[in-house]
């Protein structure tokens, strides 16, 4: 049999599955974004001459949420990559109890986001949460962690970083283990410092893994929903509302499914654009092992 035909046949089940759970809902949403489908139309679709998209362009709440979501994704994914790399390097070192340490480090990632968000909500509670108990022990007044827009944003980022850094670390750890130990040994023999090894050998060879982690995390962070919904419900005064939350509100609160689909597609386009940029940025230069 033709080998390429075999390839296609072997991939077919996966492709069909992807088409059903990914492509079809996406195309359906894209079509719905050109229709009015709300409580006014009895949820039946009616063409509305692109009014959904015109509304999107003038929708201050959409732009505010887009900016807030981008800021959230940029900062939290950046922090996660840095911390995740450090964590991966530590976990990569041979030593006693490494297996336990790895399992322990993965724990936050294994927790369901909703449970974790409830946990953080309690940690941030004003005035009874553990953080405020610590402040109180030092004789300080209780602090409302989730009361102002900027602090709510910051503490949402911290909760997200805490949960997803282990995921990045796990990916990068797999990458580190694929780097042959002899390469590092030979550099050590030639008198390279640990900093040089990291910059000249580890990072360049990790690049595909880093871009993979970036891709996954950006996609997740731009679609952030559960963490924000449980932690702050997008508050205070809508300042931490994410695009996914706004789309949800349009469907569930305003019963406007046409516009909700428009928001979903806009978020998707934004996501494609950003991940493409990130991917190109990291893929552009060919791998080089400097001497």
């Amino acid at each position: 049999m033709n080998p390429s035909l075999v390839n296609v046949l072997l991939m077919a089940p996966a492709l069909v599955l992807l088409a059903i759970v990914f492509a079809w809902p996406l195309l359906d949403s894209a079509w719905l974004s050109t229709q009015a489908s709300s409580v006014l139309t009895g949820l039946a679709p009616l063409a509305n001459d692109g009014a959904n998209w015109q509304r999107l362009l003038g929708d201050a709440r959409f732009w505010q949420d887009a900016a807030s979501t981008l800021r959230f994704a940029g900062v939290s994914v950046g922090l996660e990559l840095g911390l995740g790399l450090a964590m991966a390097l530590v976990l990569h070192r041979p030593g006693r109890g490494r297996g336990w340490l790895r399992a322990l480090a993965l724990l936050p990632w294994a927790l369901p986001t909703t449970v974790l968000a409830l946990g953080w909500r309690w940690i941030y509670n004003d005035p009874y949460g553990p953080l405020n108990a610590i402040l109180k022990a030092f004789g300080m007044a209780p602090y409302g962690f989730l009361t102002t827009p900027s602090s709510t944003w910051l503490f949402t980022v911290i909760a997200d970083v805490w949960k997803t850094t282990p995921f990045v670390a796990l990916l990068l750890l797999a990458g580190l283990q694929s780097i042959p130990a002899e390469l590092e040994e030979s550099l050590v023999l030639e008198g390279a410092s640990p900093g040089q090894i990291l910059r000249r050998l580890t990072l360049p060879l990790l690049r595909p893994w880093i871009s993979l982690a970036l891709l996954f995390r950006l996609a997740q962070a731009l679609g952030v929903f559960d963490l924000v919904q449980v932690l702050s419900r997008g508050g205070p005064a809508g300042s931490t509302e994410s695009l996914a939350l706004y789309a949800y509100h349009n469907a569930m609160r305003f019963l406007d499914f046409g516009y909700s689909a428009t928001l979903v597609i806009a978020t998707f386009l934004l996501l494609v654009l950003l991940t493409a940029c990130g991917w190109l940025l990291l893929r552009r230069r060919p791998l080089e092992i400097s001497r």
């Binding site: 009015a36 709300s38 409580v39 063409a47 009014a51 015109q54 509304r55 003038g58 046409g258 516009y259």
Partner: peptide, 20 residues
């Protein structure tokens, strides 16, 4: 303007003051 666009977008019909 935004209210008029919103009504057109959700109702699927033109409004007298809508920009469409």
């Amino acid at each position: 303007t935004q209210s008029a666009v919103l009504i057109e977008s959700a109702a699927g019909e033109h409004t007298a003051s809508g920009p469409l």
